[in-house]
């Protein structure tokens, strides 16, 4: 009758849970605590010379599993700041409606031009709010706080940060 003890144990455990406080957060009515590494939208950044960092290499477009990134590559031309030839992107769009937030685009970017941001509120339910054009992506650079780990350092950072309340 080895089955009796596990049965009694199970009954004891569920009974103990009866007196426990529910862990439910009444989300739309109560604010939810965000984890330290929580992030939800993107930004394109400028490099140290104040130029658009994106070189239009299309690596992010190719790696994107849900194919939401579109990059229009421009011809290589000289950088006004350094005088060296480099690539440029004519256009860059990212559709958050189908984005699965895998962050592969951030990891694959050779120049760390695309980063994730910590928006304090969800970006909104309207479809046009979720479609990030190039200008909106550059506007996010300074408008929103950066995710704690960005760019190629993501690949190196396999140690999870400690979660704290936002």
């Amino acid at each position: 009758m080895s089955i009796v003890k596990p049965c009694l144990d199970a009954l004891r455990i569920t009974f103990r849970h009866l007196g426990r406080k529910p862990t439910t957060v009444m989300h739309p009515f109560q604010p939810r605590t965000r984890a330290a590494r929580w992030r939800q939208t993107f930004a394109l950044v400028h490099d140290e010379h104040g130029e658009e960092a994106c070189i239009g290499c299309k690596k992010c477009e190719k790696i994107c599993p849900s194919e939401v990134i579109t990059v229009v590559m421009a011809k290589k031309r000289e950088s006004p700041a350094t005088g060296q030839k480099r690539g440029w992107a004519d256009d860059f769009t990212l559709d958050l409606t189908a984005c699965i937030v895998c962050e592969l685009c951030v990891q694959v970017c050779p120049v760390d031009a695309i980063v994730m941001c910590r928006a304090p509120t969800p970006p909104g339910g309207a479809r046009e709010d979720l479609f990030l054009t190039m200008s909106r992506l550059y506007a996010n650079e300074h408008a929103l706080p950066r995710a704690p780990i960005t760019g190629t350092s993501l690949i190196a950072s396999h140690q999870p940060a400690e979660d704290v309340a936002q």
């Binding site: 849970h17 009866l18 426990r20 529910p22 862990t23 439910t24």
Partner: peptide, 13 residues
């Protein structure tokens, strides 16, 4: 309600 409390939820609210 009972099942909710047993599973750490709140049940119908």
């Amino acid at each position: 309600k009972f099942a909710g409390r047993m599973q750490g939820r709140v049940g119908p609210k």
